[in-house]
Design a protein around this nucleic acid. Structure first.
Length: 854
DNA sequence: GTAGCTAGCGCC
DNA sequence: AAAGGGCGCTAGCTAC
């Protein structure tokens, strides 16, 4: 085998990218994982010749299509023993990195493999077990023939990353895919969630992995070699990119898919390549089924002991009971998409740009009064901001260089910017110029936070500490002349400002520095909103033709949570930070309404259940403010106050009729700081946070933090025991399991590297909780999806944000739909029950927009 | 010019 | 040696 390096330099511009080409790294698709040579040498014939071409039956006409359609429909097997049809498509006219496949992309061909025994060749022409259909040449007529095939629910189809193929196939002729049976990417995740560094989950990587394919090595026989012959597309079809002078360059580029397919020189190789994908998927499914059948699925013992629990003996059971259907549901949600109000976003953009302009001007004026270069600096560059504020600071790692006193940066020249924006007339001025930045502080700022590379961090937390409370210094500056002497006293100013006050000499100078850094922070915050949400949500790449955004929902996390991409709809700004109301842009279609429901304290409830923690279970049963109740368990002074009747956890009915003055105080008001600590611990302990980290956050001694942690555990000893069991499991077996028994491999639990090992051990106590919450959310979504009444009412799932779901449907049925949604979430197990030892609390509402429904 | 990295930040 | 789990996305930067 030729030597290949691991770089993926396939800048494969424009519109070619395809499903299995370099779909995406998160899904472990080719790109990062397939060795792609940099060298512009022709592919070695030995490597790519599979000898497969003669085994491929090609179809280019409707007549041939009708003949093979019969063979396809004759080979579906039985309910008990289905014959799996592995399918795959190749796609042109889509930029997979940027565009949603809903409404983008055109299928140029597809391939099907039903196993080595099925023969697609006409009588008397020998045997061809691979089917390859040319939809470029075949066009609409061929699609019309195969529509019946794709829509037939009795044909059990298998795909690798079904999501992509489903959408691009459904881009043609209103086809509605049915008969989904398995997604080998999801099966592979369930088998081993830890392949990120081991080649990932691309079809290429999996089908050429001896481990993944081990269960069908025998069946493959000599074919195993053939599987391993599979290579990335660019390796086989790449051509040297032509340089400006027309000579071949070093970089390889991939011609457009439709060209490769039609080009006489590459067509046969292309047919082989693409037919091989279906075959690889088929064998991979066989192997993974055998693997999953051999792996136990051990649910949380407390849960598994409950009467009525649907036991999955093996992970294959888990796949067939839940995950396959869930995978299909996710593709349906992707297709549904969310309607986005572009006008609203355009308006938000205007406001954001204006706010940003004002804030930027304020900072730049101030900074350039102290350093000439700041006039032209890039204030979005952390490096440059660090140069201004931390010049001369040492690196935390002694062997590495610190921040220089002065440094030059290359910036676009003002002349060029003017020329570029004013119509490019005449000779182009020089594009860039050097800009020198030096430190501007009067006294060095004490560095508290460092980046991983040892340099002073300039994150928003650091800048916030320098600037003080948002808006305060700025307000002082704006009203400076009318301030009283007392208000202008050193003491008062220092109190109102952040740490930059002293570093810039105090007085008005100090206040101004704080105000300017505050503005800088503002610029960064606005920029994030603009570039992450406001702008991309208006673009056509992630929107389908009907104006809805169709992000991808992936099952690709270590814990079993979903992740969302293009766009990442799961990290829209939280309500309190959503200053431009971005969530208002997510809206229901006319006549419809959004139903939004989320779990309360889902992860803590799962911890209570799995650990069998008496105190936590009681607290959830009692209801009310959970964090106050935690504080009550930790601090005796709260207990005393309650015993004396001076405070209560929450008001009961009797308190409501009392005069306000006669009412006892609430714990969350009187013991606010205790409650705050209890709340932080509730969230932190599940993540494995250490006393050291808490001490740093709270600015207390290690001892004090450790004592507080002990107070938390004192009331909840079962949690500590449970965590020890998880860690032990991780060390002994290098795995932990979620609530429903899915596995997460943690090889680092045996690592000699203590940092890796610690991380694995923290993950071991978090994964059952986080993954268990994902399990519950999955069950609830399946119940919602299956609910015949919700379907009848016209309600569809659009989105999941870990513990929250969004549905859309006709406004007239909103009350019933919300009630049903909550019911399913509260009773997510098959049979409409909740088998946990703790109730599942669900909060929900409906509204025209996401913002209002939260 | 590109690819891959770091830093940073959004969500649960 | 670091010191809270899980993600995706962007801008800036640098090596090639």
């Amino acid at each position: 085998m030729a030597t290949t390096n691991r770089t993926n330099n396939g800048r494969i511009g424009g519109s070619w990218k395809r499903a299995l080409g370099d779909f995406d790294k998160q899904n472990g698709k080719v790109g990062a994982t397939t060795g792609v040579s940099d060298e512009a040498k022709p592919a070695d014939d030995d490597e790519i010749a599979t000898g497969l071409r003669d085994d491929v039956q090609t179809v280019e006409t409707a007549e041939e299509a009708r003949r093979v359609l019969k063979i396809l429909l004759d080979n579906t097997g039985t309910e008990d023993r289905p014959m799996y049809h592995a399918c795959d498509t190749e796609v042109a006219y889509i930029s997979v990195a940027d565009q949603t496949p809903v409404g983008h992309g055109q299928v140029t061909c597809f391939s099907v493999f039903i196993g080595p025994d099925v023969n697609f060749a006409p009588k008397g022409e020998g045997k061809r077990s691979l089917l390859w259909v040319d939809t470029l040449r075949g066009g609409d007529e061929v699609w019309d023939v195969f529509k019946e095939y794709f829509e037939n629910p009795n044909v059990k189809k298998v795909w690798h990353n079904y999501s992509f193929d489903r959408h691009v196939v459904e881009n043609h002729h209103g086809i509605k895919l049915a008969g989904f049976a398995a997604d080998t990417m999801h099966m592979a995740r369930l088998w081993n969630s830890n392949r990120k560094l081991d080649g990932g989950y691309s079809l290429e990587a999996l089908s050429s992995s001896a481990d993944a394919m081990s269960e069908c090595a025998e069946m493959l026989g000599a074919g195993a070699e053939m599987m391993r012959a599979k290579r990335g597309m660019k390796k086989i079809f790449g051509k040297p990119k032509l340089k400006k002078d027309g000579t071949p360059g070093k970089t390889m580029i991939l011609p457009p898919i439709e060209e490769i397919q039609e080009d006489r020189e590459s067509r046969d190789r292309w047919i082989e390549y693409s037919a091989l994908d279906a075959q690889a998927t088929w064998f991979l499914r066989e192997s993974l089924e055998a693997k999953l059948r051999g792996m136990s699925c051990e649910a949380c013992p407390i849960l598994a002991s409950k009467p009525g629990y649907r036991t999955c003996v093996t992970l294959w059971d888990f796949y067939t009971y839940y995950l396959a259907e869930f995978g299909n549901l996710l593709t349906q949600m992707e297709r549904n998409g969310l309607l986005v109000d572009k006008d609203h976003l355009a308006n938000a953009e205007k406001m954001a740009l204006e706010d940003k302009r004002v804030a930027e001007e304020y900072f730049r004026n101030w900074a350039s009064s102290k350093c000439e270069g700041a006039k032209l600096m890039n204030i979005g560059s952390g490096l440059q901001v660090r140069q201004l504020l931390f010049a001369g600071a040492k690196n935390k790692r002694r062997d590495k260089p610190g921040v220089e006193l002065t440094r030059e940066f290359t910036q676009e020249s003002p002349e060029w910017i003017a020329w570029d924006s004013a119509g490019r007339e005449g000779k182009a001025p020089k594009k860039t110029m050097k800009v020198a930045l030096h430190g501007i502080t009067l006294k060095p700022i004490q560095v508290q936070t460092f980046t991983a590379t040892g340099l002073p961090a300039v994150s928003s937390v650091v800048l916030r500490a320098l600037a003080g409370k948002p808006g305060v210094a700025r307000a002082l500056m704006d009203t400076w002349d009318s301030l009283s002497d007392k208000e202008k006293s050193e003491e008062a100013l220092k109190k109102a400002c952040g740490a930059a006050y002293d570093a810039f000499g105090g007085g008005q100078e100090g206040v101004q520095a704080c105000a300017a850094i505050d503005s800088l922070n503002d610029v960064a915050a606005i920029d994030t909103l603009l570039s992450n949400f406001i702008i991309p949500l208006q673009g056509d790449d992630i929107r389908g033709p009907e104006g809805r955004v169709h992000g991808a929902l992936n099952i690709n996390t270590e814990t079993g949570r979903l992740s969302a991409r293009r766009p990442s709809l799961q990290n829209q700004p939280a309500l309190e930070k959503d200053r431009y109301g971005i969530r208002r842009a997510f809206t229901a279609a006319p006549g419809n309404i959004l139903v939004v429901a989320d779990y309360g304290q889902l992860e803590l409830r799962l911890l209570a259940h799995m650990a069998g923690c008496k105190s936590m279970l009681e607290a959830f049963e009692a209801g009310g403010d959970f964090h106050s109740r935690t504080a009550l368990g930790m601090y005796s002074n709260i207990k005393d106050a309650i015993a004396k009747g001076e405070a209560v956890l929450e008001y009961g009915e009797q308190d409501a009729i009392k005069d306000e003055k006669e009412r006892p105080a609430l714990v969350k008001d009187v013991f606010a700081s205790e409650r705050r600590k209890a709340k932080v611990l509730n969230f932190s302990i599940a993540y494995g946070k250490t006393a050291h980290g808490l001490a740093k956050d709270w600015g207390t001694s290690l001892e004090e933090a450790a004592n507080t942690v002990d107070l938390w555990y004192a009331d909840r000893p079962e949690v500590r025991e449970w965590q020890e069991v998880q860690k032990k499991l991780a060390v002994e077996k290098n795995l932990v399991r979620t609530l429903l028994g899915r596995v997460r491999n943690l090889p680092d639990a045996s690592s000699k590297n203590e940092a890796f090992k610690s991380h694995a051990l923290r993950a071991s106590i978090n994964t059952p909780i986080q993954g268990g919450a994902a399990d519950i959310a999955m069950l609830a979504m399946l119940q919602i999806q299956r609910c015949p009444r919700l379907k009848e009412l016209g309600y569809k799932l659009l989105m999941q944000i870990h513990d929250e779901v969004i549905l859309e449907g006709p406004e007239e049925h909103k009350d019933e739909a919300l009630a049903l949604t909550k019911y399913h979430m509260e009773n997510p197990f098959p049979g409409h029950v909740n088998l946990l030892d703790v109730a599942l609390a669900v909060d929900g509402d409906f509204a025209k927009t996401w913002y209002e429904a939260k």
